[in-house]
Design a protein around this nucleic acid. Structure first.
Length: 415
RNA sequence: CGGGGUGUGGCGCAGUUGGCUAGCGCGCCGCGUUUGGGACGCGGAGGUCGAAGGUUCGAGUCCUUUCACCCCGACCA
């Protein structure tokens, strides 16, 4: 990508209405635009990051054999009334709207009901089970108060997954498998070491659910971490009898602030029963289906990563989510230098490396500052200094040292 | 919903006790000089002051209503 073609621009100014670091940086760098409180648009570079995050999640979830689907955002009142969850007293963050004829609709905030409903025609035998589907979709939640940039927004991108098992035992196995997959996903995001599987309230379905909490000062949740066992417990269930039940030693727990980046739930047979999703077993007997749901906040993850991987100069994305691997700079407008930079751009691109090429007619200082602010992992400079030897200067975003490398060495370095 | 705060060109801000053509910086456009850590000169474009109503000879400045945004709290299937 050539920056002369990119419509967005960075800004030195911090938007005064944004307090949270993630939103400040993402707006300054031109990744997102705030439309209204808790509602953000993703501009070209932001869209790439968001997709990268979603795709990592997809890759790992696909490995588990789950199928990707895409449910509708518009939700029928009738369907949700079958489980009682249309009621604002039970689910208070619905966005509700109306058809032209006055019929009420909701904007999807979770999808247990429609997933079950849409699969009803296909599931009837033990041979159909188990299976899981997931989607990466925009959710609408009418939060009383949006805050912390992408961390608590009203329109958010989420990976939500639903599993269907023949029995409670089968479900438990799948659930544990998913918990492991989740930890793997957070490792790929570079926050594996500060993300904890966390016991939390199980709601009406089970005693506990599992949250995945990433330590962060901006977190809204308070958790108690057992560093050795690498598990934590949410403050909401932090009680002596619960600790005892979980075998946690109070003296080993450390109180921390954290961001909930994922949540997995056992749903039992409540929804499948209410909506009539069941199966006939090997003996011709009707059986209930056990359901689980598994969420990862994709846009929230982007906010968290922006918040976590940043310094006074700007963002510093992990390689896997960065909008490009290399930020290529030509210094000066000397035709030889420009030619060499163009060639480097073509060569890197041909090798499948994503490059942001700062081909603008700017002074070096501005280019360096933008390279830092945008948070691209490697900065590669083409200048007169190293032109004769056909060498390139490489600097990693999170290191101070410079490396003078040939194209061969450079490719090896960033691989 | 309670408490606190803020709305003035795209962004960040200033605007005295109401007073004449609403300023400054960044960014943007043009010309020129610059080119290894956000350069500089000259010349431009762009706002009706969140919105509505009111007081006044006169309102960005005062009053009323309203909308939006931020922070704290309550809330978070």
């Amino acid at each position: 990508m050539r920056l002369t073609k990119l419509v967005t621009r960075t800004s030195k100014m911090v938007p005064s209405e944004e307090e949270s670091k993630n939103a400040q940086l993402l707006i300054r760098a031109g990744y997102v635009h705030k439309e209204m409180s808790g509602v953000y648009s993703y501009l070209p570079l932001g869209k790439i990051v968001l997709d990268n995050i979603a795709n990592i999640v997809r890759e790992e979830i696909n490995k588990t054999g789950a199928f990707e689907v895409q449910m509708s955002s518009l939700q029928s009142r009738e369907l949700w009334e079958k489980t009682g969850r249309w009621d604002d007293k039970l689910v208070d963050n619905w966005f509700k709207t109306k058809l032209a004829n006055g019929q009420e609709l909701g904007l999807g905030l979770t999808h247990e009901e429609p997933v079950i409903n849409s699969l009803l025609p296909f599931v009837s035998s033990y041979k159909d089970l188990p299976f899981a589907v997931y989607q990466v979709q925009t959710k609408f939640r009418n939060e009383i108060r949006a805050k912390s940039g992408l961390m608590r927004s009203r329109e958010l991108l989420m990976k939500d997954q639903y599993s269907f098992s023949k029995s409670e035992d089968d479900h438990k196995k799948y659930y544990e498998e998913m918990a492991d997959v989740y930890l793997k996903i957070y490792s790929r995001f570079g926050v594996g070491d500060i993300t904890y599987r966390t016991y939390a309230d199980g709601g009406i379905f089970s005693e506990f659910s599992d949250e995945f909490q990433t330590l962060s000062e901006v977190g809204e949740d308070t958790i108690y971490v057992d560093e050795e066992k690498r598990i934590a417990i949410n403050k909401e269930v932090y009680k002596d009898d619960v600790l005892k039940k979980l075998g946690l030693d109070k003296s080993k727990l450390v109180e921390r602030k954290a961001v909930e980046v994922g949540n997995i739930f056992s749903l039992g047979t409540k929804y499948t029963k209410e909506l009539g999703l069941d199966y006939i077993d090997e003996n011709g007997k009707k059986q209930d289906i056990v359901m689980g749901c598994y969420g990862i906040g994709v846009s929230r993850m982007m906010g968290l990563l922006a918040e976590h991987f940043s310094d006074e100069k700007g963002l510093s994305w992990p390689k896997e989510v960065a909008p490009a691997i290399v930020y290529l700079i030509n210094i000066g407008n000397d035709s030889e230098v420009v030619k060499a930079a163009d060639e480097a751009y073509d060569e890197l691109t041909a090798k499948g490396i994503k490059v942001i090429y700062d081909d603008r007619d700017l002074r070096p200082g501005e280019k360096f500052a933008d390279a830092d602010l945008l948070g691209i992992p490697y900065r590669v400079v083409v200048s007169e200094k190293n032109l004769a030897e056909k060498k390139y200067e490489l600097k990693a975003r999170n290191e101070d040292s410079l490396h003078i490398l040939s194209m061969q060495e450079l490719l090896k370095y960033i691989a």
